[in-house]
């Protein structure tokens, strides 16, 4: 029998409400706008990015309302970032949602298997997100997106990358894949370094339920801004990676 006085029961209710909003809220409040953007928008990618931004923003507003023991401190300078490759550590599935909720115009790299999912894959493809590998079906999508990335960044868009490739809540940043730095160099884009902390206390890797019961402070900080002189002293990929690692070590 379910003990409604159990603290876990409250976690269960909050998790159920949030999942209901994530799926039901999308169909009830957002799907119509996505369909309108798909059929009518002159720039479908930007429209989908903006809708994703609004959807995650509304999801996180609801999350904040339901889990008042978790406080949030987000550096508002992040919302002003433009034309940059943004690299961030990754501790929870919430991290991409948090960063996207801060940036209306963004692309990101997503594990290729997510592109195979119904609806979700369609949203990501139309938002111009990049698959993380050249799976046969998505090879040209990746080529097209990388080729267009420089122009997209020049026009003010951002590329969000979690260079560790997967969630890592060991307390230290893991090994960085080179992809983010290769794209930054290819596009001659500045790199902004973000540090996200404690989102894993709210939604812990490997657990299904949101943890509503601990007092916690989730922070997102802009800890570094790297603006190489690509024209006169182009850095190597290894140098860019070292600069980002240094920002995490000292920021």
């Amino acid at each position: 029998m379910v003990n409604i006085f159990s603290p876990m029961f409250f976690d269960f209710i909050v998790t159920a409400v949030l999942w209901f909003y994530f799926i039901g809220g999308f169909f009830l409040f957002f799907l119509l706008f996505y369909l309108l953007a798909y059929t009518l928008s002159r720039n479908r990618e930007l429209s989908f990015q903006y809708l994703n931004h609004l959807f995650y923003k509304s999801f996180l507003r609801l999350t904040k309302l339901l889990v008042p023991k978790h406080s949030w401190q987000i550096d508002q300078d992040i919302t002003k970032i433009r034309s940059s490759v943004i690299v961030c550590n990754h501790v929870s599935y919430l991290d991409p949602l948090i960063i996207i909720s801060l940036l209306a115009h963004h692309k990101t790299i997503v594990k290729t298997r997510f592109f195979h999912m119904p609806v979700f894959g369609w949203l990501m493809k139309n938002a111009g997100y990049l698959p993380s590998s050249t799976d046969k079906k998505f090879t040209f999508l990746m080529i097209k997106q990388v080729e267009r990335m420089k122009e997209y960044l020049l026009k003010g868009g951002n590329l969000i990358i979690f260079p560790e490739g997967t969630r890592n809540n060991t307390g230290n940043t893991g090994e960085f894949n080179k992809g983010a730095f290769k794209i930054a160099r290819l596009c001659q884009a500045p790199i902004k370094v973000l540090r996200i902390c404690n989102s894993d206390k709210l939604f812990t890797p490997g657990k299904f339920l949101f943890n509503t019961r601990v007092r916690n402070k989730i922070t997102v900080e802009l800890i570094g801004s790297i603006e190489p002189d690509y024209l006169h002293a182009p850095p190597t990929v290894a140098e860019l990676r070292n600069l980002v690692q240094k920002a995490f070590a000292t920021g």
Binding site: T134, M142, V146
Partner: peptide, 13 residues
């Protein structure tokens, strides 16, 4: 040489 798909796309150019 750590040559990946992003490098391949750059090389195509």
């Amino acid at each position: 040489h750590g040559f990946d798909s992003i490098d391949a796309i750059e090389l195509l150019g």
